[in-house]
């Protein structure tokens, strides 16, 4: 079971590595061919409306997707762990909770849309922003859990023998909130994968970076492209990959934690 749980992460890492190797090894696959060519041995998914090999774009898009997911994962993890440490102190708990309450309602996708005006937002930044904003609901959950843990008798006992806040947060609170942290983090990372694809689908984000959303968007924007076989393939395959990638991010971390929990019982 544990091996299966880590399987998702391993598959994700392998896919990224393969994608990077293939993409870096064969940059000319993005050069111009006749547009919307039917799938054949040279171009298994055909070519896009601009005349680039669709399989090559798909592989390049994998990097963007993973980048968005991983940066959201890292940001969310950092914020939630920080929230645990800060909210272990009674003085700061109220402040953390109030900040999270205010930021929970901030519209994420619209904010990214507005920010897309100022900079060509790369997938990494999309991941960071989504990771930060999607964690706010999690911060409230984690603060509530921290409050429960710090009120428990063993924490009181720990305080009585002189343990400081940092020690209590590291030794008692963090291990007991880890499951909640992982759950919110996995949600944030899968939301980032979806947001990256969705925003690039409507033509936002850095135009120089290939993305699955951009593949779909280009087909939908090109009149008549969707009526062709390569068009249908180039809409459905990237969408399937997006769902698969978001699922991998969502499931792998969550299952890993649950397996750890079961093992510790």
């Amino acid at each position: 079971m544990k091996e299966k749980a880590y399987g998702g992460v391993v598959i994700l890492a392998l896919l990224t590595l393969i994608a990077l190797l293939v993409y870096r090894a064969n940059p000319e696959c993005l050069s111009k061919y006749p547009s919307l060519q039917h799938p054949d041995l040279n171009h298994p998914l055909g070519t896009d409306p601009v005349g680039r090999d669709a399989l090559c774009l798909l592989v390049a898009g994998l990097v963007s997707s993973v980048e968005a997911g991983l940066s959201a994962l890292a940001t969310s993890l950092l914020i939630l762990i920080l929230a645990v440490y800060l909210s272990t102190s009674k003085l700061l708990r109220g402040l953390v909770n109030a900040t999270a309450s205010i930021l929970t309602g901030l519209p994420r996708i619209s904010l990214l849309l507005l920010l897309a005006l100022t900079i060509n937002i790369p997938p990494l930044i999309i991941g960071v922003i989504i990771g930060a904003l999607a964690s706010m609901q999690g911060v409230r959950g984690v603060v509530a859990r921290t409050r429960q843990v710090t009120a428990s008798t063993y924490v009181e006992a720990s305080k009585a023998i002189g343990a400081n806040t940092l020690h209590i947060a590291t030794k008692h609170v963090l291990p007991n909130t880890w499951s909640a942290i992982a759950s919110y983090t996995s949600i944030a990372s899968s939301v980032a994968v979806y947001a990256e694809a969705g925003l690039s689908m409507i033509g936002l984000g850095d135009p120089s970076i290939p993305s699955w959303g951009k593949m779909v968007g280009l087909i939908l924007e090109t009149p008549g492209a969707i009526l062709t076989n390569p068009g249908i393939i180039q809409v459905s395959v990237p969408l399937l990959f997006t769902v698969a990638m978001a699922s991998i991010f969502y499931i792998s971390l969550l299952i890993t934690v649950r397996t750890e929990e079961k093992a510790s019982l």
Binding site: S190, Y194, G198, M201, L220, V235
Partner: peptide, 18 residues
């Protein structure tokens, strides 16, 4: 429930053309 709304929206966009 895990499927984002824009996938259904893309299906609608495709149906507009098809």
């Amino acid at each position: 429930s895990f499927i984002p709304g824009y996938i259904y929206a893309v299906i609608i966009a495709v149906s507009s053309w098809l």
